[in-house]
């Protein structure tokens, strides 16, 4: 089988590709931050809140953990507006979905990180007279965050890859721009190779960072 590879034509689409990368990275940053906040609310609500507070948070989390993100995306874009009577732009639907989907996983990472802090640390902070909020801020979270960083980086890597699904709603991310270029040039092999290489080039440094954080010796508990 013979195929003439020719990547040269991609240069003329650099503008489109640049927009695609910007959307992909932008959606990742936005939905990671919002997802982390959603996850923090869910995790802290479960740890510190009353049972009536925790139950709906857990339910929401399990819905997003146990359904495919593509199904969520389509459902929130088409079905949610019918339920609540508010029109959603594709970008808004994408941000909501990816933030909540990421939040469901971030929540478990955050909860695990907090639960991983030794009970003696809570005792020591409380014995000094710290209120719950001060104990969290000064003693528990600084130690928990350190443990959470590697899994948070990993989840954020998944988060970036999941942004490729927003192309199904015609949000112009990297994959969607690739589809546009393909339909204009009929050269899917080069286009999707380029798309894969760009994702790889963005994510490889992140995975290396995650590995570095995992292997760094953690301080022995005092």
């Amino acid at each position: 089988m013979h195929y003439e590879w020719d990547f040269g034509f991609l240069w003329q689409y650099r503008g489109l590709i640049g927009i695609g990368i910007a959307y992909t990275v932008g959606f990742t940053l936005l939905t990671s931050v919002l997802g982390f906040l959603a996850g923090a609310v869910i995790a802290l609500g479960r740890i510190a809140g009353r049972p009536w507070m925790a139950a709906p948070l857990v339910a929401l989390m399990e819905v997003f953990r146990c359904t495919p993100v593509l199904v969520q995306l389509v459902w929130i874009y088409y079905a949610l507006p019918v339920l609540v009577g508010v029109e959603l732009s594709p970008a808004a639907a994408a941000v909501i979905t990816l933030s909540l989907y990421g939040g469901a996983f971030y929540a478990e990472i955050i909860r695990g990180g907090i639960r991983g802090v030794e009970p003696g640390q809570w005792d020591a902070g409380r014995a000094l007279g710290m209120t719950r909020a001060k104990l969290m801020r000064s003693v528990v979270l600084p130690q928990a965050l350190r443990r959470m960083v590697p899994p948070l980086v990993n989840q954020t890597i998944l988060q970036l890859k999941n942004t490729s699904l927003v192309s199904t709603l015609a949000v112009p991310d990297l994959l969607y721009q690739g589809q546009l270029i393909t339909s204009a040039t009929y050269r899917p092999l080069e286009v999707y190779t380029m798309v894969a290489v760009v994702y790889f080039a963005i994510l490889l440094p992140l995975t290396q960072l995650a590995r570095l954080l995992e292997t760094r010796p953690s301080r022995v508990a005092a």
Partner: peptide, 17 residues
């Protein structure tokens, strides 16, 4: 109330960070 009593634990429980 807790702030008025100082407590020392068997396992030290110093803040490692």
């Amino acid at each position: 109330f807790r702030a008025r009593a100082g407590m020392v634990f068997q396992g030290f429980n110093l803040f490692p960070h």
